[in-house]
Design a protein around this nucleic acid. Structure first.
Length: 800
DNA sequence: TAGCCTCGAGTTCT
DNA sequence: CTCGAGGCTA
């Protein structure tokens, strides 16, 4: 039915000539579109040409040629693939597993030795290229027409997947004239990451629709392999595959690789001219140093590439040298693959445990057989919550795929169901706390199970204390989790208040842990680690120093739910003292910017518990907390924002239920003030005065005056921080800085009236990028946010 | 009320 | 770093 050579046909028919013309055009445009990624005509125009050709071919089936673009899609469903013997074996190349530079240098040394070079000889030229994570394919062209495509198989023979490979737009079906009579091009079929994501999305949609036999893929490599080995070419045609050429197989007649090209690099350039996609990451490199540099450079770009790679490949560039080096058994001596640590690995699930967090949140965690993935050994991975655990359906004994992709945190990607041991039971969250035995329940509309034990629960008590000692809270150096655990178990520490009653006598000689190790003569001995005087003194000194900390760190350290670092700072700035926060009512708390009903209620609930009040009161007698930021900016209450906020929060608008009840209870501001005892609606000396002056007036007049004052206060605030280009701006810091720590820099910006935020958005004014800037810098560039380097900050005042 | 923008909380390993 | 959810704004 098909004729291999187009020119064997009668050229006199105008329709036939048109078909010929259309094929030529379509080949050209396909190359522009798929390979060069620079279409010259709109898709619709391409489709129009395509349909015109289809129409002619439908009328004259005998005119259809093997290389016709219409033949990319089509063919029939196969029962199985035919096995084809390779004319030239598809060898594998040796892999350097070493993830250090030594992999590159040892290859260079080996090559030099085998070529008989000495140290005085010039460095060897190499071609370096990424090692794509896909599957190797051999493309056979005869008289310039693609006639067969085969998988690598065992290297000697592979499977005939011609039908499916034809559907890949990047692979030319016909070559320009002047190519060898027989030409085999080898390369990698792979799937781009974005194509992979899109494919899985549509697959999920199909599954949701109930389509039988559809599934999602674990990774792009599997998707590519699955698609190439798809028996139904119509399905394969829907799969977005890509191709990179990197070498040759059999070549006969016309020009022959060995004779025409002097180097591998020239060969690749020629393949590119013939219409094959060649990666633009391919480079030449000189000597071991060049290899090392390339390995590093690609390693750094690895996560940003549009496709997966598992390493890089080094090839001796000179074909003459390649010939001289020859082969060792089944591997070329002139090439080597230098792999990166795998980012995905298989391992088994040893156990699934439940951890209890500071807030009582119960988190299921899988214990894994140690596995080296992404450069580190992973033994744990979180399942986050019950829903997530159900979705992934991980069970003890399962074989799972573990990933450490662009991020750092290991994650279970999926379970290999076919390897599940019989009788493996589905995981379910326990309904009691695994630590203290209290009830554990999941609130409606929440994903998390929580232990209700509170500080009765050992896990929560220990973590509450650790949190208090945290670097960003009271910063008690040397008081780590292990030590806290020991002290709590011994009954020396029952609450954070006990910290300030510890003495050297009580600490000295306490057993921290028993450590087994191999002693003399291979006998196992247990070593008892105890607290030495040195350590005890250090710890006591750190505790002593922590007596003087800013109010906001203390508030953060209390561990009130929903009150993190930032909210603690807001609270401290607004109220000025812990006592005032303790006395505050929900209504007062709602006046704090950025603080809503949920958090306000949480604060009130915390101080409704007698135990907490007792602990805090005890602490306050022990501590000399310092005021928040006694710097340039006074704790100014922004009236301009306050009024709309009070309105929005329903405190000052008639109509809403909350307002109504508030107004019923407090018909005038002074009634509210009186009800709050020592607290006042507005805190801080100037504002307090204002509030007093207003006492007695009805709400509407208060509002009016507040509005007036708001304007002048904003002016005052601008004055206070005026002159600084950062006043009122939102700044995000990323990376590390040479002149000072990040926290210090953060303080500087806060002092200048800037807001330091943790994530970049369109509302961010500046991103300050230090060394090793992370993804926030990318975000900044993406969103067009102004980026400052450390040296641009020279004008930061207060740089004592 | 939806759709940002942030913050809080939990997690891993060197 | 990521997820979920609180708070604010259009």
């Amino acid at each position: 039915m098909t004729t291999p050579d187009l020119f064997a046909q009668d050229p006199s028919s105008p329709e036939l000539a048109r078909a010929h013309e259309l094929r030529k055009l379509l080949h050209q445009h396909a190359h522009q579109y798929y390979v060069l990624d620079a279409p010259l005509i709109p898709d619709a125009e391409y489709d129009r040409l395509f349909q015109a050709l289809q129409a002619i071919e439908a009328a004259h089936p005998d005119w259809v040629t093997a290389d016709s673009p219409t033949q990319r899609v089509g063919g029939k469903v196969l029962g199985q693939f035919a096995t084809v013997r390779h004319a030239v074996p598809m060898l594998s190349i040796r892999t350097e597993t070493d993830n250090q530079a030594s992999g590159a240098t040892s290859f260079d040394m080996r090559v030099r030795r085998e070529l008989g070079l000495t140290e005085t000889d010039p460095p060897i030229d190499y071609v370096v290229e990424p090692k794509f994570d896909g599957l190797a394919i051999n493309l056979r062209y005869e008289q310039g027409v693609l006639i067969q495509a085969t998988t690598r198989g065992d290297g000697e023979s592979g499977e005939d997947v011609t039908q499916n490979i034809r559907t890949i737009g990047q692979i030319p079906l016909r070559l320009p004239s002047g190519t060898p009579d027989v030409l085999e091009v080898r390369g990698e079929v792979y799937m781009r990451r974005d194509d992979f994501e899109r494919l899985n999305q549509t697959q999920r949609a199909r599954i949701a629709r109930g389509d039988k036999g559809e599934k999602t893929f674990v990774n792009p490599r599997n998707a590519a392999a699955g698609s190439v080995r798809q028996l139904d070419p119509a399905i394969a045609a829907r799969r977005p595959l890509s191709f990179f050429a990197y070498g040759l197989g059999e070549v006969r007649g016309g020009c022959s690789g060995q004779q025409v090209f002097a180097t591998h690099f020239e060969l690749l350039q020629t393949l590119k001219q013939w219409g094959f996609p060649v990666s633009d990451l391919v480079r030449t490199a000189s000597g071991a140093a060049g290899l090392v540099a390339y390995h590093q450079s690609i390693g750094q770009q690895r996560d940003q590439l549009g496709f997966d790679i598992d390493g890089v490949v080094y090839k001796v560039n000179s074909l003459a040298m390649q010939q001289q080096l020859g082969f060792a058994t089944r591997e070329p001596r002139w090439a080597v693959a230098h792999k990166y640590p795998a980012q995905e690995q298989l391992t088994t699930v040893l156990d699934i445990e439940v951890q209890v967090g500071r807030t009582g949140k119960m988190t299921p965690v899988v214990r894994l057989a140690p596995v080296f993935v992404g450069g580190v050994t992973v033994t744990n991975a979180t399942l986050h919550n019950e829903d997530e655990a159900r979705r992934k359906d991980v069970r003890i004994g399962d074989t799972v795929i573990v990933r450490r992709a662009g991020d750092v945190i290991p994650e279970v990607v999926s379970v290999l169901l076919e390897q599940r041991p019989a009788g493996a039971r589905q995981f379910s969250m326990p309904h009691v706390c695994p630590v203290c035995g209290s009830a554990a329940a999941r609130e409606p509309d929440e994903v998390d199970y929580r232990c209700v034990g509170g500080l009765f629960c050992g896990a929560q008590r220990k973590q509450a204390i650790s949190h208090f000692a945290h670097r960003r809270a009271m910063d008690i150096e040397g008081l780590g989790e292990e030590l806290v655990s020991v002290l709590v178990d011994l009954g020396l520490l029952n609450s954070v208040a006990d910290l300030y009653h510890l003495s050297i006598d009580r600490l000295k000689g306490l057993v921290i842990r028993e450590e087994p190790f191999v002693g003399k003569g291979g006998v196992m001995v247990t070593k008892t680690v105890t607290i030495q005087d040195d350590l005890a003194n250090k710890l006591l000194k750190a505790i002593e120093q922590s007596r003087r900390r800013p109010v906001d760190r203390f508030v953060f350290g209390l561990g009130i739910r929903h009150v993190g670092e930032s909210t603690a700072r807001d609270l401290a700035r607004f109220f000025g003292s812990v006592e005032r926060i303790m006395a505050a009512h929900v209504e007062t708390l709602l006046c704090v910017p950025e603080l809503g009903a949920v958090t306000a209620q949480s604060v009130v609930s915390f101080f409704e518990q007698a135990q907490n009040v007792q602990t805090v009161a005890s602490l306050l007698t022990q501590l000399e907390l310092t005021l928040v930021q006694p710097q340039a900016v006074p704790p100014v209450l922004d009236f301009g924002n306050l009024i709309p906020r009070l309105l929005v929060k329903g405190l000052l608008t008639r109509g809403s239920k909350a307002t109504q009840s508030l107004l019923d209870r407090f018909p005038t501001p002074d009634a509210l003030l009186a009800a709050q005892g020592n607290g006042s609606l507005i805190i801080g000396s100037p504002e307090e005065t204002v509030a007093m002056a207003l006492a007695g007036s009805p709400w509407p007049q208060v509002l009016e005056q507040l509005a007036e004052l708001g304007a002048s206060w904003q002016g005052a605030k601008a004055l206070a921080t005026g002159g600084s280009p950062y006043a009122g701006k939102t700044v995000v810091l990323t990376g590390t800085f040479a002149s000072m720590g990040r926290e210090q820099l953060e303080q500087r910006f806060l002092a200048l009236g800037a807001k330091v935020s943790k994530s970049v958005s369109r509302k961010t004014d500046f991103v300050v990028a230090g060394d090793k800037a992370g993804s926030k810098l990318d975000d900044a560039l993406k969103l067009g946010v102004q980026v400052l380097r450390e040296e641009d900050l020279k004008d930061l005042p207060g740089q004592a």
